[in-house]
Simulated assay, not measured.
Amino acid sequence: MRCLLLSLPLAAMSFAALGGGVARADVRAAIRDQILPGYAALTDASRKLAEQGAQDCTVAAMQPEWNAAFDAWLDVAYLRLGPVEEEGRALAFAFWPDPKAIGRRQLQALKETADRDHITPEAMSQGSIATRGFFGMYHLLYGEMAQDDAFSCALRQAQAEDLAQMAMATEIGWQNGFADQLLNPGAQGKTRYLDEAEARQALYTQLISGLEFNKDQRLGRPLGSFDRPRPERAEMIEAGRSAENLDRSLQSLERFAQALAQGMGPIPNTTAAFARAHELVADLEDPVFAGVASPGERLRVEILQQQIALTVEAVDQELGPLLGVSAGFNAADGD
């Protein structure tokens, strides 16, 4: 397995070189303070994961770096625009929900054939998105497929290398053009967004979509219905990360909201709504939302879900008018 080439020092590139003087403060702040540093951190963490795999690809050795890289992913996972949407990267990074367990089944089939021609980084990048990225690796690091046989080890190496290359390509895409599209909308050669309003709308929609994903997927899936709760549908149960993923995502979204508000005006109701959501997550003391099957504990999860809905309302009523935008479509719907 070849070592991943060191990432270009993209994060060190001068923000001014991207033309950051045209768009309003909200767009500039979001890109400068959240988006570009977030993707730089993802590139760095993914590279470290690949390097760890090249040195020692056992489950115990790779789990810490995988967790660190997934934390970095959660800081930008709500962004479903630009380079991450190219070549199916968003789903390749994180194929979840996976209600039919496609990824698990396809990885199991790969292990049964033990065909090493299918587990090079190049082959991985051309293969099923369900076997790639963070969730592809997750299946081989937690649960029944978390084994240290030679084939599993090589498969994790290929996944990590593929992941690192995707992260670098996404960061490069932002640095080499897409950030400029948002910072200089309507300028010559910048036709993706026609004016500042469209650029603000695009970023604001990512914020709303990220909150809705947490409400409908990270909480909605395990909640199921009162008559049929589905705790087994929670995200990353084997890793014990279900509530942690939710809270990390909420923290990232709050920082993004604050960046969008920078220079535009205060958003006290939005800040308070996020703070209450964080408190409710901490008060659960239920890392995998197993309590949804118990009426008393289920109510606590439902209250948390309602609080995220209230956070969406606060953002829509407070930040939206400051930016002169509305929620728009949900990018996760593919509309």
Rank of each mutant, 00 (worst) to 15 (best):
G127Q: 05
M264G: 13
A11K: 07
G82W: 14
S7K: 02
V315E: 07
K111L: 15
A109R: 12
G240S: 05
A23T: 14
I35V: 14
A197S: 13
G21P: 00
S14F: 03
Q201I: 06
R80T: 15
M264L: 15
G53K: 03
A239T: 09
A282R: 08
D148H: 06
Y193N: 10
P64N: 10
F151A: 03
T120I: 09
T271C: 09
D180E: 10
A54K: 02
P185S: 10
R192A: 14
Y193I: 07
L81D: 15
A293D: 10
A94R: 04
L182C: 05
A77N: 11
I119Q: 12
A60D: 15
Q217G: 01
D333Q: 11
A331P: 01
D98Y: 00
P97V: 00
A25T: 15
F134C: 06
A72D: 13
L246I: 10
Y193K: 09
G224H: 08
F289H: 03
R24P: 09
N184C: 12
A331L: 13
W174M: 04
P99Q: 00
R228P: 04
V27Q: 02
D227S: 04
L323T: 11
S252G: 06
A50S: 13
G136F: 05
T113N: 02
L36Q: 07
A17L: 01
L141P: 02
A68E: 10
Q317K: 08
H118T: 15
V76T: 11
L91N: 11
L253G: 01
E235Q: 03
W66T: 12
V312H: 02
Y78R: 06
V312S: 03
A261H: 12
D149K: 11
G21H: 05
S326G: 12
N184T: 13
S152D: 15
Y39F: 12
A273K: 02
D117Q: 13
L10T: 02
D216S: 00
V312I: 12
D316P: 00
A273L: 03
G127N: 08
M124E: 12
T43N: 06
G133P: 08
I208M: 07
A40W: 00
D149I: 14
E51Y: 13
E51C: 11
F213C: 04
Q217R: 06
R132M: 14
I119G: 13
N214P: 05
D56R: 14
N184G: 03
C57V: 05
E232C: 01
I172R: 05
A123K: 14
L284N: 05
S125H: 08
D75Q: 12
S294E: 07
R200M: 15
